[in-house]
Amino acid sequence: MSPLLERSSENLRTCFKIINGYIFLSSTEFLQTYAVGLCQSFCELLKEITTEGQVQVLKMDQLLGNMIEMWVDRMDNITQPERRKLSALALLSLLPSDNSVIQDKFCGIINISVEGLHDVMTEDPETGTYKDCMLMSHLEEPKVTEDEEPPTEQDKRKKILALKDPVHTVSLQQFIYEKLKAQQELLGEQGFQSLMETVDTEIVTQLQEFLQGF
């Protein structure tokens, strides 16, 4: 779909109808798979759109906003922690952005990010710091008790595959910090603070606790 969107404005009307159809047909699965790519394509189109396509800009803005809003609203339908973390990473990948539609949904993006942190972060009782419990290391070897079989070759292959998954290789905590820092650099201190003021103060407090040490 993204290549079609990028070819010419003649395809926009048809593409929007197809996207809307998929969203109403199976929104959760569709957005999990295609939302990031579509949002990025929409943002690029908004920068490069030609005169003949300007009549579609408002529809594009509305569709982009609706996609992000539905994505945020349907987060509770995702129950597996791995997929919830992946969804948070995907939403955060839209930042930094000076696109007004994405900035309007900044509060929702942060809310989902903090929910993701609650899902995956564990606290070290000695240091009081948090770490992402889903991260895996090449050096980690599974602990095997006397009653358990050692890992098979298939188990090792599964681990190698898992090590290519951003869920197990990207720290959600660090990713949020880097994205917020990039957004701050893009907007400046005053603009960034205005954006943060759209987020509930309790959510901001929780976010700050998770990001201690950065």
Rank of each mutant, 00 (worst) to 15 (best):
C39P: 01
P96N: 03
V204C: 10
P81G: 06
K156W: 00
E6D: 14
L63S: 04
G128E: 00
D200M: 06
D104I: 02
C107V: 09
L63P: 01
R83Q: 11
T152K: 05
D119Q: 11
L139M: 12
M196P: 09
C39K: 03
E141Q: 09
N111E: 12
E149Q: 09
G191W: 00
K164V: 03
E123W: 05
Q190H: 06
E6W: 07
L38E: 05
L64D: 03
Q54L: 12
C107G: 02
L187K: 11
Q56G: 00
K105D: 12
L64E: 06
K159W: 00
T33D: 13
L95G: 05
T129N: 07
S100R: 14
A35R: 01
F30R: 07
L91K: 01
L4Q: 13
L25G: 07
E82R: 13
M75H: 15
V144W: 00
Q54G: 03
K158L: 11
Q154P: 00
V101N: 03
C39S: 11
V72S: 05
M75I: 09
L31H: 10
P142L: 03
L92N: 04
T79H: 10
P150D: 09
V204E: 08
M121C: 08
Q103W: 02
I78K: 02
L207K: 04
M196V: 01
E209C: 10
S100M: 10
M1R: 06
V167Y: 05
K59I: 07
E6F: 08
E44N: 14
T152G: 01
L135F: 05
K131Y: 13
T28Q: 15
E153N: 04
T51E: 15
F30Q: 07
F16G: 02
D132T: 02
I109Q: 04
A35E: 06
A90P: 00
L180Y: 01
Q208A: 10
S8C: 15
P151G: 05
T201D: 13
T205D: 15
R83G: 04
E82Q: 13
K47L: 11
Q174S: 13
Q173M: 08
I19R: 10
E209D: 14
F210C: 03
A162T: 06
V170E: 07
